[in-house]
Simulated assay, not measured.
Amino acid sequence: MYTTRSRARFATLCATTLCVTGALSLPALASAPSSPSVVSTLDKQFLTAAHQGNLWEITTGKQAQSAATTACVKRAGADFVRDHRVLDAGVAKTANKLGVALPSGQTAAQLRQTAALKSLAGKPAYDAAWLKAQHGAHVQTLALIDKEIASGGNPDVKSLARSARPVVARHARMVEHGTCHA
């Protein structure tokens, strides 16, 4: 009988201790910052590539507005600057929310491509080279978007990709086959 009473007292003491400890920790749990959503490697790669792509599009879009020889390419450049600023604002906001650090600039390859385009500024060859570079970049971006939509892990990043897809697809059509269809 003594053993049963001892066990009962021990169980009551443990239950009381757990309840008090749990009650005391509730305010701490309520005020603790929520952890950011899980972000996969693919999600991080998408955010990084999208950001760098947007920076490149903005830079080359501005360049086209002054360096192109046709109104169509100048107009497409202006559209790309406007649209990619909006897209990049979404990328930056999502990355910040998820704690993903974005690079401060474009890739080395993008910088080389921008310089190559600049060397053609004011010449008819500029327009053809710009259209070709834009088409290739937008086709690659569509593939990246589709991969994120299909296999990305974070719902916020996947939503960002879904919302960017129609804009990037429209841009690809604007410069399809190295011809301006603005």
Rank of each mutant, 00 (worst) to 15 (best):
V139I: 14
K97M: 05
T12R: 13
A71K: 14
H138Y: 00
P124H: 07
A50N: 03
S34F: 04
L102Y: 07
L120H: 05
D83C: 04
V139N: 06
A92P: 00
G90E: 07
A137M: 08
L13Q: 04
A15F: 09
G22I: 08
V38T: 12
S31Y: 04
T12C: 05
H135F: 13
T60W: 06
G22D: 06
K123E: 01
H51W: 11
T141F: 10
A23V: 10
D146S: 10
A143M: 00
R112S: 15
V39M: 04
G136A: 11
K132T: 14
A92S: 15
T17C: 13
L24Q: 03
A78C: 10
G152Q: 07
A71S: 15
C72Y: 01
G105Q: 03
R85Y: 01
A50H: 04
Q110L: 02
A95N: 11
L142Y: 02
V139G: 10
P36M: 07
D88R: 03
I58W: 05
C19R: 09
T70Y: 04
T12G: 05
S25F: 14
K93V: 05
L131N: 11
D146Y: 02
S40D: 04
L47E: 10
L117K: 11
A89K: 13
L26K: 05
L120V: 10
L131G: 02
S151C: 01
D127I: 03
P36G: 08
T60S: 15
S31F: 10
K97S: 12
K74L: 03
P155M: 02
S25Q: 13
S66L: 07
S119N: 11
T48L: 00
T17G: 14
G99Y: 01
V39D: 00
T70S: 15
A68H: 01
G77A: 03
S35R: 12
A64L: 02
A137T: 12
H84P: 01
A116K: 13
L26N: 00
L24H: 03
F46S: 08
A78G: 11
N54Y: 07
Q134H: 09
P27W: 00
V73N: 06
A28F: 14
A125H: 08
P36S: 05
L111Q: 15
R112E: 15
Q63S: 03
A137E: 12
Q52F: 11
T114P: 04
A32K: 08
T16H: 07
G153V: 05
A15V: 12
P36K: 03
K62V: 02
K62N: 15
P33D: 05
H135R: 09
D88M: 03
V73M: 06
Q106N: 10
A71H: 01
T12F: 13
D127A: 08
K74G: 02
P124N: 07
T114Y: 13
V86R: 14
G153P: 10
Q63T: 02
S25A: 13
L111Y: 05
P155C: 07
E57Y: 00
Q63C: 08
G122V: 09
S66T: 15
V20N: 04
Q63R: 00
Y126L: 11
R9D: 06
L26D: 10
P103Y: 07
Q65S: 06
C19H: 00
L98M: 08
G105L: 01
T48F: 05
E148F: 06
A50G: 05
